[in-house]
Design a binder for these strands. Structure first.
Lengths: 337, 337
DNA sequence: GTGAAAGCGCTAACAC
DNA sequence: GTGTTAGCGCTTTCAC
C-alpha cells in the first residue's frame, strides 16, 4: 500500500502538504492541490486508519449499540440501523456494531481502546445503567429513547406522550366520547419501558382535556389475550366506540376478532394504532396510525453526535412530533348525529 | 488514558515486557507476569486500538457486509448478524458493519485503509462482482452464499441442492408419486439467485432418481399468485399429492387458500417447506421444513476467516447438509394403500 | 527472562 | 503557501 510519504515524493511536495490537502486545514495553492490529488489518484493512496487515529485521535468510526432482544420489532430496527449507517457514511464515518448484551463493558472496551469517536445507543430504557457510564467517556454519545435520568446526554425519540394525545384528539374530533386503550403486555410496563408509560400519560391528559371517558388494558397479542382485553374495555365502558392500540402484534388479531364477531371497523368501532407503519398498512382494514419515524430519528441521532464531535454542546431531549397517518380504520362513532 | 509506558513504569519493567505479557509471545517469569497484570488492572489500562493496528498490522476488527435489501428475510438476517457478532467477540474481534450497496467501493475503502482484518460477505449472488475484488485484497474473506465463480474464496451456505432433494425424498418415502414445486417469484430466478436454482436442481435430480413426476411454478406470495400457481401445478399434474414450497412468504397464504377450498393438510395435500424455521413453525398447520441453519453458517464463517488469519489456507465451498424438521404437514398420499 | 530502540503512517505544531 | 519534525502508543527486532 502506498503511504503518505509515497504520495509526497510522487507529487514533489512535503508530507505535511499532502496531509493538509486531505484535511483542508490550511490553504493550498491550486496547482499544488491538483498535483497532490493527481498523485493520490495515481498511486491509489488511502490513509491508514490506525495511523490516522493514533496521530489525530479521530477514528472516523461510530459505535452503534443495537438491541438484539428479539422482542424488538425487526423491520423498525432494520430501518434504524440502515439509516444510521447511511447517515454515518455521509459524515465519512463507518459503523462498529455492538450488541445490547455486552452492556456497560462493551462501551468501556470500545471507548477506552479508542475504537470509536462517538456512540449511538438504541432502545434505552427507563433505568438503563448505560447513560451514567456514557457521560464518563471521552467520546460523545446520543441515546435513542429516553431514560429516567439522561445524565445530560442528548436523547432522540418519538414524542410518545404527544402520540398518545394525538390519537385521542383525532378520535375526539370525530365525535368519540368513550375511548379504550389497548397497551403492550403487562411485562412491558413492569420492565419500566418509558415509552409505554409516556404514551399512556399523553393519552390520559388529552382525554381529560376533552372530557372523554377512557379505559385502559394491557394486552397479550394472542386471540385469548385480545378477546379478554377487549371484553374488559367494553365492560368498563359500555359506550366504547373507539380504541387506541399501542401494540403492533395485537393489531391483526384484533381485526380478526372484531371481524369474527361481526363488528365493523370503523363502522362499529374505530381503531388508531401507535407503532411501525408496516404493521398498520397491510391489514384487512388499513390502520390510521402514528408511525415510528425511524429514519428521522436515526438521522437526527447521527447529526447530533457529529455536531458534538465538532464541539457543539447538546443536552437536549429531542422528542419528534407525531404524524398521524389517516387511513380507513377511523370514522365518527355509530350513534353520531 | 493510561498508556503502555505508564504500566511499564508502574510495574517497574520495560515497555516490551508489558507488550509481551499481553501478547504471550515470549516467556515471562511468573512474578513479572503477575506484577504487570496487577499494574494493568490498577491503572485500568487498555491498549490503543489505532496504535496497535499501526504497529502490529492487526485491527481486531471484522468487516461484515450485510444486504439491506428489504426482500431479505429479516429474522434470518438478524440471526446471522447476531451470531457473527457474538462469534467474532469470542475471537476478540469487533464487527464493522458495511452495507451491500456500498458494493465494491466499500470493500476497497475498508481494506485499503486497513480498517479490518478480514471480511465476511453475506448474500452473495451468482454473478456477484465482489468475489473477484475480495481475492485481490490483503485481508482474507469468506462468502455466505455461493457465486458462480467463488474465485477461490471459501464459501459457506446451506446445501440447497441437497435440501431440494431431501424434501422430495421425504415425500417419495411417504409414497408420493407426483410432487409439485412452488418456488420464489420469477424475478428471483431472473436475478440469478444461485440458491433458487440449486434447490430446483436438487429437487429435479431426486425426482428423476425416484421416478416421481413433478411440476414447477414460480410464485408471487399473494392470494392471486398462490391460487394461480397451485392451479397450474394441478393442471399439469392431476394426481398431485404433495408440494415443496421454497417461498416463505407464500406459506401462510397457501395454507389459507387450501383451508378455504376445504383441502386438508396433510390429508389431501402434503406440504414441505424450505426456508426460515420461524416462518414454518407457527402456522395453522406446523410445517415439515428444511430450515436455514443461520447460526451454524455464521459460526462456520467466522471460524473460517479466523483460521485464515492464523495462516491456514482454505478454498473450500462448504455446503451444510440440510436437516429435515418433521412436523404436521406431511403424510402419505390420500390414495395410499 | 528482560530491556532498548527502531519503526509503523499519520497529524499538527513550529518553522520560514 | 510550504517544509521539517516531534510525537501519537504500540510491536518487534536486536542485544544481553
Amino acid at each position: 500500500m502506498a503511504t503518505i510519504a509515497d504520495v509526497a515524493r510522487h507529487a514533489g511536495v512535503s508530507i505535511s502538504t499532502v496531509s493538509y490537502v486531505l484535511s483542508g486545514k490550511r490553504a493550498i495553492s491550486a496547482e499544488t492541490d491538483a498535483r497532490v490529488r493527481r498523485s493520490i489518484r495515481e498511486l491509489g493512496y488511502r490513509p491508514h486508519a490506525g495511523a490516522r487515529s493514533l496521530a489525530g485521535s479521530r477514528t472516523n468510526v461510530l459505535a452503534l449499540v443495537v438491541p438484539l432482544r428479539s422482542d424488538m420489532n425487526l423491520p423498525v430496527l432494520m430501518r434504524f440501523v440502515t439509516t444510521i449507517v447511511l447517515s454515518a457514511r455521509e459524515h465519512d464515518h463507518d459503523v462498529l456494531l455492538l450488541t445490547q448484551d455486552e452492556g456497560v463493558d462493551g462501551l468501556l472496551r470500545v471507548a477506552e481502546s479508542a475504537m470509536a469517536d462517538a456512540f449511538i445507543v438504541m432502545d434505552v430504557e427507563a433505568d438503563d445503567p448505560r447513560p451514567a457510564v456514557l457521560t464518563g467517556l471521552a467520546q460523545p454519545s446520543v441515546l435513542i429513547g429516553v431514560p429516567d435520568d439522561p445524565s445530560g446526554l442528548p436523547c432522540v425519540d418519538l414524542d410518545f406522550a404527544a402520540a398518545g394525545a394525538a390519537c385521542l384528539e383525532h378520535l375526539a374530533g370525530l365525535g368519540h366520547r368513550c375511548v379504550g386503550f389497548l397497551g403492550p403486555p403487562e411485562q412491558v410496563y413492569l420492565r419500566g419501558t418509558s415509552f409505554a408509560r409516556r404514551t399512556l400519560e399523553g393519552f390520559r391528559g388529552a382525554a381529560d382535556a376533552h372530557g372523554v371517558r377512557t379505559a385502559e388494558e394491557p394486552c397479550t397479542p394472542t386471540f385469548g389475550g385480545v378477546r379478554a382485553a377487549l371484553a374488559a374495555l367494553r365492560e368498563r365502558r359500555p359506550g366504547l366506540s373507539a380504541v387506541v392500540v399501542h401494540n403492533e402484534d395485537a393489531l391483526p388479531v384484533l381485526q380478526e376478532v372484531l371481524h369474527a364477531e361481526g363488528a365493523g371497523v370503523p363502522g362499529d368501532l374505530s381503531l388508531v394504532a401507535i407503532g411501525p407503519d408496516e404493521s398498520a398498512e397491510g391489514l384487512p382494514v388499513p390502520m390510521t396510525v402514528v408511525a415510528m419515524p425511524a429514519e428521522q430519528i436515526a438521522k437526527d441521532a447521527v447529526r447530533t453526535v457529529m455536531r458534538r464531535l465538532d464541539g457543539a454542546e447538546d443536552h437536549t431531549v429531542r422528542l419528534l412530533p407525531p404524524q398521524l397517518q389517516l387511513r380507513a380504520s377511523t370514522a365518527p362513532p355509530p350513534n353520531a348525529p
